[in-house]
Nucleic acid binder design. Sequence first.
DNA 1: ACGATATGAGGACATTTGTCCTTTCCGAAG
DNA 2: CTTCGGAAAGGACAAATGTCCTCATATCGT
Lengths: 190, 190
Amino acid sequence: MDKFRTLLKNISPITDKEFADTISYFKELVLKKNEFFVEQGKVCRQIAFIKKGTLRTYYINDKAVETTSCFCTENNLTTSYKSFILQQPSTLILQAIEETHLLVIDYNSLQKLYSESSAWQTVGRAVAEREYIVMEQYASVLNNETAKEKYLRLLNEQPNVLQKADIEDIASYLGVTRRTLSRIRREISK
Amino acid sequence: MDKFRTLLKNISPITDKEFADTISYFKELVLKKNEFFVEQGKVCRQIAFIKKGTLRTYYINDKAVETTSCFCTENNLTTSYKSFILQQPSTLILQAIEETHLLVIDYNSLQKLYSESSAWQTVGRAVAEREYIVMEQYASVLNNETAKEKYLRLLNEQPNVLQKADIEDIASYLGVTRRTLSRIRREISK
DNA sequence: ACGATATGAGGACATTTGTCCTTTCCGAAG
DNA sequence: CTTCGGAAAGGACAAATGTCCTCATATCGT
């Protein structure tokens, strides 16, 4: 909970009282390995703060190719944001790749917070802006980094993920086939 | 101006009075062909509504490769959003590829609107959410569409851009070299 | 109208990546 | 310890794309 408080502080100033008054809107949720937080085609009704564990965000396109957009780890917010904002069916799938403990708030509660509290309205905008920046960063990575560079960054920034996720998932994160990932790993262990 | 009013209405409800009270914050700006709206390394201080014309958004990465992320056309909002939000130097470059007429609001004015008006606070969040969705869509395109598919979409959705922009820019939008774009055009005119 | 210059098309070859397989490795179960 | 099954590595070839050119055409200023 402290970690969540810290995250919110970093996002936007909010007083201890405002935080205390609204914390009851948040619920605990535990997912076992391979359980879904968001399923494809269902509306995402919650935003989650990850207390512990890892969620893989991915989707399957019309050519039946699976793409992993990120591995979300502890002390971060996650959701199928577009689905959440628009309350429309999600194209993204969020699945736990290990046991994961979440703190979640649902859509209606958040709208209630927005209408009751200007501070939370500001948090909402700040979160949207943050999510935007994360997504822009992601697009930049897609445009500029080779699969090998992405692999090295993963190795540097989220080494645990390389242990926890399987080759197929990592390849789909890098945007290449298993065969190419195999070549990359060989090159790196020169 | 009417078109701008319509756009705002679509983004978030705002009354005619609120609109009228704040319209003085917006200024007209005209760019000639090849003039910059945002230069690389400079802080982007404005959001623009494009009344007429086309802006190309692009950047140059550390390998000196140029990537065009979008061609923004009339009746849309545009800015170097990350730079604007954070008021930090922009990595993106926004350049007019033809004479372009803008309606702009600067950062300080917008913050003033946010603090004075709850309605504008809501507009701000809605704009951020919208920008997020656009960026997610962009990332999805990067992941799922081949260069040929992107070319066909451009042909379908923004045919004028294909006339106005040069081959180099379009190739950098598709994420391929001129040589590959040449092959794509040949294939399409089968 | 003219040459100078820029812009787009496309040939030849090298490199990268994908597809389809087979082989190797490793852990679980007998 | 041995065997089995699944996951990862990697061989062989095909397809796609990039690099480096040249050639043709369009555009502009004098």
